[in-house]
């Protein structure tokens, strides 16, 4: 062992591994911290164009109106199907948000039209992280069972928000309209 340790190559290799490992570890912690601190309503709602969206969120069950349990923005709006998908969706949506914030006039955005494409920015993998027992538990609730059966059998192409178009933000259209009226 001690002879091995005397070999310069081995010592260098261990050193490199240690550095790589610890920087990887630190990087992971950094990334997690960054993700954690940039994925909730305080951060996302910090930009003024998100104010009405945040208001509607806070008025909804998912914003804490139900038993004070709330979902974070990134729990619904990031892909949770794999760590890599989570990472890439964070980078992608983050970049789009920053770009739009700097280049676009939010009062000119047709928000109602954007909501029609909600399937592309609300992820079932997020919903199912919390509602993970839906498939099983809905059996005891007849109407929920009937409604979700084709979804779990994959006999229809539906996302959660296809049938739950208003989930997460209560009266969003009204909040958006009144916000831009206030601004004028």
């Amino acid at each position: 062992m001690s002879r091995l340790w005397k070999s310069k190559g081995i010592r260098a290799a261990v050193f490199v591994l240690l550095i790589a490992g610890s920087s990887g570890f630190l990087g992971w912690i950094g990334l997690q911290t960054a993700f954690e601190s940039t994925g909730d309503q305080h951060y996302c709602g910090g930009c003024h164009e998100m104010i009405p969206i945040r208001r509607a969120y806070l008025a909804s069950e998912h914003g804490g109106q139900h038993k004070s349990v709330a979902a974070r923005c990134d729990q619904c709006h990031l892909d949770h199907s794999s760590p890599w998908a989570h990472f890439t969706s964070k980078v992608e949506t983050g970049a789009v948000d920053v770009w739009s914030h700097m280049t676009k006039d939010p009062s000119k955005i047709d928000w109602a039209e954007k909501r029609k494409h909600r399937e592309s920015f609300v992820f079932d993998s997020g919903c199912l992280t919390c509602h993970k027992d839906l498939e099983r538990s809905s059996a005891s609730n007849h109407k929920a069972f009937v409604a979700h059966k084709p979804y779990f059998l994959k006999s229809v192409e539906r996302k959660c928000v296809s049938c739950h178009p208003h989930v997460g933000h209560r009266d969003l259209n009204r909040h958006i309209t009144s916000f831009y009226q206030e601004m004028q």
């Binding site: 609730n141 007849h142 109407k143 009937v146 208003h166 209560r170 009266d171 969003l172 259209n173 009204r174």
Partner: peptide, 16 residues
Amino acid sequence: AHVGVTCLDCHQVPED
């Protein structure tokens, strides 16, 4: 009625 789908399940709409 058998499965508990009531008036509001179909007739309730969002405020906006």
